[in-house]
Amino acid sequence: ENVVSAPMPGKVLRVLVRVGDRVRVGQGLLVLEAMKMENEIPSPRDGVVKRILVKEGEIVDTGQPLIELG
């Protein structure tokens, strides 16, 4: 699984990683606000951040690609 998608609609509050960062399974990639709750979106696997597909403040839909892992 190379693309991390939004599990719910919401607003991207914070991106916690940068392109080139090594991440571990379960590590927070970004914080999504949904229904006034902050939800940290975890990495599904170990890898390297290849691309960040959203910006802070952006509104996303369920299933929208957020981050690509390499």
Rank of each mutant, 00 (worst) to 15 (best):
E1F: 00
E1H: 01
N2F: 10
N2Y: 02
N2G: 08
V3P: 07
V3W: 02
V4R: 00
V4Q: 10
V4K: 03
V4E: 05
V4Y: 03
S5M: 11
S5Q: 11
S5H: 08
S5W: 11
S5V: 07
A6K: 01
A6F: 15
A6L: 06
A6R: 02
A6V: 08
A6T: 14
A6N: 04
P7V: 08
P7D: 05
P7R: 06
P7G: 04
M8V: 09
M8D: 06
M8P: 00
M8K: 07
M8A: 05
P9G: 02
P9Q: 06
P9H: 15
P9Y: 03
P9C: 01
G10H: 04
G10T: 12
G10L: 11
K11A: 06
K11N: 06
K11G: 11
K11P: 13
K11D: 06
V12K: 00
V12D: 00
V12S: 12
L13Y: 08
R14C: 01
R14K: 01
V15W: 05
V15D: 11
L16G: 06
L16R: 10
V17L: 02
V17A: 13
V17Y: 02
R18H: 02
R18P: 03
R18V: 13
V19G: 14
V19D: 14
V19H: 07
V19C: 01
V19T: 12
G20H: 11
G20P: 04
G20F: 02
G20M: 14
G20W: 01
D21S: 04
D21R: 01
D21P: 04
D21W: 01
D21L: 05
R22C: 01
R22H: 07
V23F: 06
V23A: 04
V23D: 00
V23N: 06
V23C: 01
R24Q: 14
R24A: 07
R24M: 15
R24T: 12
V25E: 11
V25T: 04
V25F: 12
V25M: 09
G26F: 15
G26L: 06
G26H: 10
G26P: 13
Q27T: 05
Q27R: 04
Q27I: 10
Q27Y: 06
G28H: 08
G28E: 09
G28R: 04
L29N: 02
L29K: 00
L29E: 00
L30R: 00
L30E: 01
L30D: 00
L30A: 02
L30V: 04
L30W: 09
V31E: 07
V31T: 10
V31K: 09
L32H: 11
L32W: 05
L32V: 09
E33R: 07
E33M: 10
E33Y: 12
E33L: 15
A34R: 12
A34I: 06
A34P: 06
M35Y: 11
M35G: 09
K36W: 10
K36F: 15
K36G: 03
K36Q: 15
K36T: 14
K36Y: 11
M37Q: 07
M37N: 05
E38W: 13
E38N: 14
E38V: 14
N39Q: 08
E40L: 11
E40W: 10
E40P: 08
E40N: 06
E40K: 05
E40A: 14
E40S: 14
I41Y: 12
I41L: 13
I41V: 08
I41Q: 13
I41A: 13
P42Y: 07
P42D: 09
S43V: 06
S43N: 10
S43K: 00
P44E: 10
P44Q: 07
P44I: 06
P44R: 08
R45I: 05
R45N: 12
R45V: 14
D46F: 03
D46K: 02
D46S: 04
D46W: 03
D46H: 04
G47N: 14
G47C: 01
G47P: 00
G47I: 12
V48C: 00
V48S: 11
V48D: 12
V49W: 00
V49R: 00
V49Q: 01
V49T: 03
K50H: 10
K50V: 08
K50T: 14
K50Y: 06
R51M: 15
R51F: 09
R51Q: 02
R51H: 09
I52V: 04
I52T: 15
I52H: 09
L53D: 05
L53W: 11
L53T: 11
L53P: 12
L53K: 11
V54D: 00
V54F: 05
V54S: 07
V54M: 07
V54Q: 06
V54N: 05
K55N: 06
K55G: 07
K55R: 13
K55I: 08
K55W: 12
K55E: 15
E56L: 04
E56G: 02
E56N: 04
E56S: 02
G57V: 08
G57C: 01
E58Y: 08
E58H: 07
E58M: 04
E58Q: 08
I59Y: 15
I59H: 04
I59L: 03
I59P: 08
V60K: 02
V60H: 03
V60M: 15
D61R: 05
D61I: 13
D61K: 10
D61G: 03
D61S: 05
D61A: 05
D61F: 05
T62L: 07
T62R: 02
T62H: 04
T62C: 00
T62Y: 11
T62Q: 06
G63K: 15
G63M: 02
Q64F: 07
Q64H: 12
Q64G: 02
Q64T: 13
P65S: 08
P65G: 11
P65Y: 12
L66F: 03
L66E: 00
L66W: 02
I67G: 15
I67F: 07
I67W: 11
I67Y: 10
E68Y: 04
L69C: 01
L69V: 13
G70T: 07
G70M: 11
